[in-house]
């Protein structure tokens, strides 16, 4: 009985993950091509929000009625958390899409050559984290978590570059601030993907690897 319901829930969360991944990809597309898919992103956002509420409800009802244990419990708890992460990821995509509306097709994009590399890395992280969750692949989940460093360093470098650029071209400040916002959101996407990776490890192995807890464990 519970198994069927959990399977159903898993399907829903995967559906949601697919939507979110698409949203993020759509929002990125605009920066490069200037062809902003803001409307599509907003439409997906609605569906994601509906799914988020539905999944949250399902998790609560399942826990209340079926008292899941062990793996079932971890699955439902992690779905509950990943559900939350995915919804936030959707919000990041919306933020990016909003800023892209303003920066789309602007020739100054070329000023920040690393931005597109950062986008590639975050999109890959997101994709990998969802794939790792789907396949319950601990190896790849841990790999995602390690990539967060790369995104963070992109974030630092681009931020510094933008500060320099703003000082040089104060008239372009609005444009640069939007690029800053995009960068910030990309960094968040990296963080949330990492969360999904961590949750996947907990789901499969029941181990908490957040906040370097695991490393300290090893040293001890």
């Amino acid at each position: 009985m519970l198994t069927e319901k959990v399977t159903e829930l898993k399907k829903k969360i995967l559906e949601m993950a697919a939507l979110v991944e698409k949203m993020v990809a759509y929002s990125f597309e605009g920066i490069e091509t200037g062809n902003n898919k803001y409307n599509e992103v907003m439409e997906y956002e609605q569906r994601v929000n509906r799914l988020e509420m539905e999944i949250e409800d399902d998790c609560i009802v399942l826990m209340a009625r079926h008292h899941p244990e062990a793996k079932d419990l971890r699955i439902i708890l992690m779905i509950y958390k990943i559900n939350n992460d995915l919804e936030r990821l959707g919000d990041q995509a919306v933020n990016i899409a909003e800023s892209v509306n303003i920066v789309a097709g602007n020739p100054h994009n070329a000023d920040i050559p690393e931005l597109s590399s950062m986008m590639d890395v975050t999109l890959k992280m997101l994709h990998q984290s969802i794939a790792a969750y789907t396949n319950e692949d601990v190896e790849n989940a841990r790999l995602v978590c390690r990539q967060d460093e790369i995104v963070d360093s992109y974030n630092r470098r681009i931020t510094n570059q933008l500060i320099v650029l703003i000082k040089e071209n104060p008239l372009q400040i609005e444009y640069y601030l939007h690029l800053l916002r995009i960068t910030k959101n990309l960094e968040r996407i990296g963080d949330l993907s990492t969360n999904i990776g961590e949750n996947t490890v907990y789901l499969v192995q029941g181990r908490v690897i957040k906040h370097q807890l695991e490393n300290t464990d090893r040293e001890n």
Binding site: M1, L2, A64, R65, H66, H67
Partner: peptide
């Protein structure tokens, strides 16, 4: 009498 049972089915 089994609340869990009521919940399950």
């Amino acid at each position: 009498h089994n609340i869990a049972q009521a919940g399950r089915i």
